[in-house]
Write a protein that binds this DNA or RNA. Structure first.
Length: 351
DNA sequence: AATGCACTCAACCGCACATCT
DNA sequence: CAGATGTGCGGTTGAGTGCAT
């Protein structure tokens, strides 16, 4: 299996850092030929003593004109953390959401800076859950993927509900799925990747919107609600009348951003950080009936349609934006090293 | 000033997947 | 359909740099 490397052990091929002359050769060739063409043949044609792979890497990570150099902004770092929470080490997919940034750059940033920051906050950088064992349920069956899955589904449900409401309020169908930023994201590389992940995790994860017309929302909502219930291991979500105990990820409050507990059922308790979005919005899903979703909670969260651009993405991103992210501003050496040094709102331990 | 250590980041490597023949 | 080829991705490495001792 496999294949021979594009540049196996050829002695005349140069390795290591690129010289300005090599950069110029590569740039000249690509600009002259309006593209790189075959990477394997490029080095020879461009007069480079490099393998095609090395050329490609140099181009994609450094020479490409749209690459944004310089330090990452705090927002970018936050976005990376949040996307990593949903996608894991899918650097290329994460990079697709950060224009001008390469997967390599993001990977480096994560490994050298962000990961340490999360660890110093007492958060497992892989699962994005509190590291402290007593903060976790004994039942670890609810995997990170499950939680991420549920978050995606929740956000998508909200988007679908909003679309449905929009269409009834304005008697018009929103302009395809692109009218909703969540759905745009859902249909983007990130969503694609996530759906792939969830599929491989044996969780049904399909967007009825993307599969069919968005005009029949009620059916899809109830269907998906059931899916969420199933994937979280809840025996009968629909029969759970304790609203505070059911999955409740969308407690939104601008003023006090904190980790809100979310719970799939009475046995599995997870903790997720929360991102402020709009004023005093509480969005509950997985209610026992669709009406609650459609009429009650949804209406409150879609007051400001103009905020949908931020909201859709924010719905997917669940980290605090206040001082909890302050580690981003500090050098890695300055990070707090014990949970005791964390801010009170870093996360909340149950019970 | 010399040395050691930690950190950053460009680049490499191997694998997996997609496409071609 | 199978093998060959091209490309992309994620993990890892190592040279360069700065800081502390």
């Amino acid at each position: 299996m496999g294949r021979t490397p594009c540049c196996d052990n050829k002695k005349d091929l140069k390795k290591g850092p690129w010289s300005p002359e090599e950069d110029e050769l590569l740039l000249n060739y690509i600009s002259k030929n309006h593209g790189h063409g075959s990477w394997r043949s490029l080095p020879k044609l461009a007069g480079l003593q490099r393998c095609g792979k090395s050329c490609r890497l140099r181009w994609t990570n450094y020479l490409k004109p749209d690459i944004k150099r310089g330090p990452f902004s705090k927002d970018e770092e936050k976005l990376i953390i949040q996307l990593h929470g949903m996608l894991g080490n899918r650097w290329a997919t994460i990079a697709s959401q950060l224009p001008g940034r390469t997967d390599n750059e993001i990977k480096n940033l994560w490994n050298t800076h962000l990961r340490k920051g999360l660890v110093s906050m007492g958060i497992d950088p892989q699962t994005h859950e509190p590291l402290s064992s007593n903060c976790l349920s004994n039942n670890a069956s609810a995997s990170a993927a499950t939680r991420h899955m549920a978050q995606w589904e929740s956000a998508r449900l909200e988007a679908e509900a909003r679309l449905s409401r929009d269409s009834s309020l304005f008697s018009r169908v929103p302009e395809k799925s692109e009218s909703d930023h969540f759905l745009r994201l859902w249909n983007s590389e990130v969503g694609k990747s996530f759906r792939k992940l969830s599929t491989s995790d044996k969780f049904a994860c399909q967007s009825p919107i993307s599969q069919a017309s968005s005009s029949t929302k009620c059916g899809s909502l109830s269907a998906v609600t059931t899916e969420v219930g199933n994937l979280t291991g809840s025996s009968t979500m629909a029969g759970n009348h304790n609203e505070d105990l059911i999955y409740r990820p969308f407690l939104i409050n601008t003023e006090d951003v904190e980790y809100k507990p979310f719970q799939f059922n009475t046995e599995e308790v997870g903790y997720k950080p929360f991102q402020s979005i709009t004023e005093e919005v509480e969005f509950k899903i997985c209610q026992s009936n669709t009406e609650d979703v459609m009429a009650g909670s949804v209406s409150s969260c879609s007051n400001d349609l103009e905020d949908s651009s931020d909201t859709a993405l924010q719905l997917l991103l669940d980290y605090p934006t206040n001082d909890d992210m302050s580690f981003l501003e500090n050098n890695a050496n300055d990070y707090a090293t014990t949970p005791a040094e964390l801010t009170p709102n870093s996360f909340i331990c149950p019970l």
